[in-house]
Design a protein around this nucleic acid. Structure first.
Lengths: 274, 274
DNA sequence: CTAATAGTGTCTATTAGACAGTATGTT
DNA sequence: AACATACTGTCTAATAGACACTATTAG
């Protein structure tokens, strides 16, 4: 069958050009939570769910926004690429990172065939100390769904909106095909990546402790609840929330005061509860 | 900034060789369920959870077993590749398929840098009519976990065993790093792919209707329960199982008899219940 | 005092786990 | 009759949803 007698011999003679090659990139969707001041001394600042975007200063998609990312190096493990890019972009290490999905439509990049593996990262903004790269910027995420169309608005240096149509692909697992039907300001297929990220986070927040990757070390239960609410896009009932969360946090003796209303205890994450 | 004045001009002059390119493949883990006869006229045949493997007849990894797969064509959407390969391998269409994970360690293939996106497919074996490709063969899966080491045994034309060590990677979401610590008969990093597939299926069977992709049109609740049990690797209590499953199936007036015990009604999947 | 959030108590409805029991075919 | 599986009833424990209530601060 084979014209070679050993693996070594085969490998020595292997012609790696028999299959056409392509390039691979990685895109990272970095989520965080930000505070938005409210002009009422009594009210709490509002939590917003946000994503980091980069303004492209060169072609293709010059002047559009995109997710941080870059090419995979030929001698670099796939999962090391997002770590490298993240360290580069945010100047911090030890960031929560998980592989999201690999996008590989033939025409997703106008330059050439590029397949991109996307990752989702979660960080606590307080760790950043404004050490962001110059052309990167945070955008608050707002979204709603209507008639199987998801309308996403990203609010930051600009207002970016896009719409994605969801078509049921499989009844047994409720999976949808996403199709961008409106998008002006985002490069590549990044609207798809962002929506995939939102959905993944929304799912995981319900059955894991993933949210704590976006929280500072100490937080009030009110703040934590707000983060859940802004990601899940719905209000939660206080007693139910506290019941469920109580096993995941430890109450400290620290107290947050000066808010114009009853002060609250600060809590921290109780590790290993998931 | 850019030396070009328009996207078109940029693209016309784009040198696609600035980044080193690589090859991509796809590996498909095809799961199904098989019956194993028991030498007792009264007892039901035992359900087994099985995976399709292909014997390699050429280098690299000549004579080892691997998952069906192949190279992504340069002008083919990533998600079309597994469909093509699956049609080729099984001669059937309309198979449940979902993207699993993209593996991209630098040295996962001895030939050259190859990144592989794995997919999980589920089929009802009865649809196959022995139309399998000649070098493909089903293996029953058995596994158990002990001290964070998963021991997997695949039983078919040969007995294949491998061990994978799980190291906790992230406390908040209970994700593990997998490391193959014993493997003789499987090619590439396919032990990792198989275990990822098992874990994905095990998870999804609990909160979706995914199992029905592996079932024939008509089945008894006993059979269905056995499939759950063999995938989850644990016994379930009858009344609880029936309570939960009752909303997902429709009872027909067909009856399965001749089994040496009380006959049972046949059920079918009630679509759109998930 | 009031506005606003912090935090608790409790009722009810629903669901999950466990076990015991009855039903009905084949040999 | 004996065996093996089919299928059901019911008790209990745990959990989720809803609502009403009390507590405490800044201004």
């Amino acid at each position: 069958m084979s014209k070679y007698n050993s693996e070594e011999e085969f490998l020595k003679n292997y012609d790696s050009s028999v299959f056409e090659k392509l390039s691979m990139t990685t895109d990272i969707i970095i989520f965080s939570v930000s505070d938005e001041d409210v002009n009422n001394y009594r009210k709490l600042s509002k939590k917003k769910f946000s994503v980091l975007l980069v303004k492209r200063d060169d072609y293709p998609f010059k002047d559009k926004w995109c997710l941080p990312g870059g090419f995979i190096k030929i001698d670099e493990d796939l999962e090391d690429a997002p770590v490298r890019i993240l360290a580069n972009e945010t100047n911090i290490h030890n960031i929560y990172l998980e592989q999201l999905y690999t996008f590989g439509s033939v025409n997703r990049d106008p330059r050439m065939r590029i397949v991109s593996t996307s990752y989702m990262a979660l960080i606590d903004k307080n760790r950043l100390n404004d050490k962001l790269n110059s052309n990167a910027s945070w955008f608050n995420i707002e979204y709603y769904e209507e008639d199987n169309v998801v309308n996403v608005t990203l609010i930051g240096e600009e207002i970016i909106t896009f719409k994605i149509k969801k078509t049921l692909k499989d009844l047994t697992t409720d999976r949808y095909k996403f199709e961008v039907i409106e998008n002006d300001k985002l490069a590549f297929d990044h609207p798809l990546v962002i929506l995939s990220g939102i959905e993944r986070l929304k799912n995981k927040i319900e059955y894991t402790d993933i949210v704590f990757n976006m929280m500072p070390k100490y937080f009030t239960l009110g703040e934590l609840q707000q983060v859940y609410e802004v990601i899940l896009n719905k209000k939660l009932l206080d007693p139910a929330f506290r019941r469920i969360i109580s096993s995941k946090v430890i109450k400290t003796d620290k107290i947050k005061t000066g808010e114009g209303h009853r002060p609250s205890y600060l809590f921290k994450y109780k590790k290993g509860t998931n």
